[in-house]
Nucleic acid binder design. Structure first.
Lengths: 184, 184
DNA sequence: ATGGAAGTGTTGGATATCCAACATTTCCAT
DNA sequence: ATGGAAATGTTGGATATCCAACACTTCCAT
C-alpha cells in the first residue's frame, strides 16, 4: 500500500494528540479547548503539535475523519458493490457516528462536522462508483458521488431531527429504490 | 528536588518499555522474553532500548525496583520513624509485592528478585536510621540496614513458605520487640 | 481605553529516537 | 559437530521531538 512506511514516532505522536483531544472533547466544549491543554495533557511539546497540524481546526478535521473512517470501515466497503445492503450499512454508520458525537458536546461546530462527513462519504462513493463504471464517465461519477454524499447526509440529519422513533435501517430502506433504480 | 528536569521523551519511552515488559511478563516466562519482543510490542526501536538499559537484566532490575517502590511508597516512609507501625507496613508491602510477582512467572529468577528487594529495603532503612541517629555512627547504621533488610526479607520468604494461614501483620508483629528493643 | 495575562504560530539549536548495517554470540535441528 | 537462524550489542547519519524565545493576537478586569 504505502510505498514508504511512516516513522513510528509520527504514528505514536499523532495518536497521542488525537486520543488526548477526543478525551478532552468529552469533558469540555470544543471552543474551550486550547492547544496548550492538549499538549500538556498529552505530554508533548507545543511546537510538536504544530509540526503535525496546522491549527486546532485541522486537528478537529483529522480526528473526526479518523473516527468516522473507523465507523465506515472504509477498506471493506471499497470492495463492495453499491447496492441496497451497502447503502443501508453506510447510512447506519453515519447515524451511529452522529449519535456518538452528540454525547461529546461539539455544539457550534455542526457545519465543520457536516463538511467532514460529506467529504469522507464523497471519497468513498466515488471509489465504489468507479469500480462499476467506465473511466470515461469520470466527471459524471464525481458529481454523482457529491449528490449521494449530500443526500445521505441530509437524510441522516432529518432522521435525527424527526424520526428517531424508527430505526435508521427502516428509515432509509424505503427510499433506496429511488437511488438504485432512479425516480421513475 | 531534581535540579534539572528530565526530557519528557525519556520519561515516555522508559514507561513504554517498562509497561510493555511487565505486560509481557504476565504472558511469558522471563527467560523467553527477548529484547526484540519488548521493542516491537512497545513500538520503539531496538537501538533505543539500549540507549536506556544495558541489557534485559538491567531492565528487570529497574522495572522491579520501580514496582517495589510503588508498593513501598518510599517518600512517605522516609518521613516516618522506624517503629512498630512502620515496620509492620513495610513488611506488608514486601509480602504484597511478592504475592503480586508470583502471578507473573519469574521462575528461575528468585535470586535476582531477592537481591533487588533487599537493595531497596537497605536504602530505605539506612535513610530512616540516619534521621534518628548521629552521623558519626554511619558505618554501624549501614550494617544495621543490611541486617534489617536481610532479616525482613528472610521473614517474608518464611511466611510465604509456611505461614500463609496467618496474616503478614500477625506474623511479623510478635517479633518486632526483638527488633526495636533488642533480644534482651 | 488600557495594560497585562493567556493563547497562537514560528524559529534555531539541542537532544532522543529511528533505521540500516555490522560483527558477535546463542541456540538448535540435522 | 556443524551450519544456519535468531538474538545481542554497537555504530553513524537521518529525522522527530524538545525547549526557550520571539512577535503577534485575544480577552477581559480595572
Amino acid at each position: 500500500m504505502d510505498q514508504v512506511k511512516t516513522d513510528p514516532r509520527i504514528i505514536r505522536t499523532r495518536k497521542l494528540i488525537m486520543d488526548t483531544f477526543i478525551d478532552l472533547s468529552s469533558k469540555k466544549e470544543f471552543k474551550d479547548i486550547t492547544v496548550k491543554d492538549i499538549t500538556t495533557e498529552a505530554m508533548i511539546n507545543r511546537a510538536t503539535f504544530y509540526y503535525h497540524f496546522e491549527d486546532i481546526y485541522d486537528l478537529l478535521d483529522k480526528a473526526l475523519s479518523e473516527v468516522l473512517l473507523v465507523n465506515l470501515k472504509s477498506e471493506e466497503y471499497e470492495q463492495e458493490e453499491l447496492n441496497e445492503g451497502s447503502l443501508i450499512s453506510i447510512f447506519k454508520a453515519i447515524t451511529n457516528f452522529q449519535m456518538s458525537l452528540s454525547n461529546r458536546c461539539h455544539r457550534g461546530y455542526e457545519d465543520t462536522i457536516a463538511r467532514i462527513i460529506r467529504d469522507q462519504l464523497e471519497v468513498l462513493f466515488y471509489k465504489m462508483l468507479s469500480k462499476e463504471h467506465d473511466a470515461k464517465e469520470n466527471e459524471t461519477l464525481k458529481i454523482a458521488a457529491v449528490m449521494l454524499s449530500w443526500g445521505l447526509y441530509g437524510a441522516s440529519v432529518e432522521w435525527r431531527r424527526n424520526s428517531q422513533n424508527v430505526t435508521p435501517e427502516e428509515y432509509i430502506k424505503s427510499v433506496i429504490p429511488f437511488i438504485t433504480k432512479g425516480i421513475q
